[in-house]
């Protein structure tokens, strides 16, 4: 039996490497919502913009390395997408972080605040998807 999760594990390790790089070299947290939030406020404009540009370059580099684009399957309707975007933007600023800041660095640093945040967004996400499935969406 083959283990089908190697790409997920290796991809995750690259995300961890990115976080370690930014932390040990620049002394900054690789939290995407925080980086975008500071970018919108014009704080550390050049480094935050550079991170976002790098992030957007990731899939094209993947295309060059592996010969195909990563899969992106979107089933949600446009109004749902827009509502989801508003909630994600509002919620990550209110909760001071998202899957990267709280999820990766917060857990790696044993932050109790991040553990609470991760529990809250995981439970809310699971509840939402479960209710959507029950409603036949």
């Amino acid at each position: 039996m083959t283990f089908p999760y190697w790409p997920s594990l290796l991809g995750g390790m690259l995300i961890g490497l990115s976080a370690a790089m930014l932390l040990l070299l620049n002394g900054r947290i690789a939290g995407v919502s925080g980086i975008v939030g500071r970018l919108l406020q014009g704080a550390q404009l050049s480094t935050n913009a550079a991170f976002v540009i790098g992030l957007v370059m990731g899939p094209p580099i993947y295309l060059v390395l592996f010969g195909h684009w990563p899969a992106v399957t979107i089933t949600a309707s446009m109004p749902t997408i827009v509502l989801a975007g508003l909630l994600v933007g509002f919620g990550t600023r209110m909760g001071s972080g998202c899957t990267s800041g709280h999820g990766v660095l917060g857990l790696a640093g044993f932050s109790r605040r991040s553990m609470a945040a991760v529990a809250a967004f995981l439970l809310a996400g699971m509840l939402t998807v479960t209710l959507m499935r029950m409603a036949g969406l």
């Binding site: 909760g95 001071s96 972080g97 899957t99 609470a116 809250a120 439970l123």
Partner: peptide, 20 residues
């Protein structure tokens, strides 16, 4: 922290997308 993260989680579940 908790309410903000929960709001984020609802949006994350609806679309399957988070900021990164």
């Amino acid at each position: 922290l908790v309410i903000g993260s929960a709001i984020f989680g609802v949006g994350w579940g609806l679309a399957g997308l988070c900021p990164g």
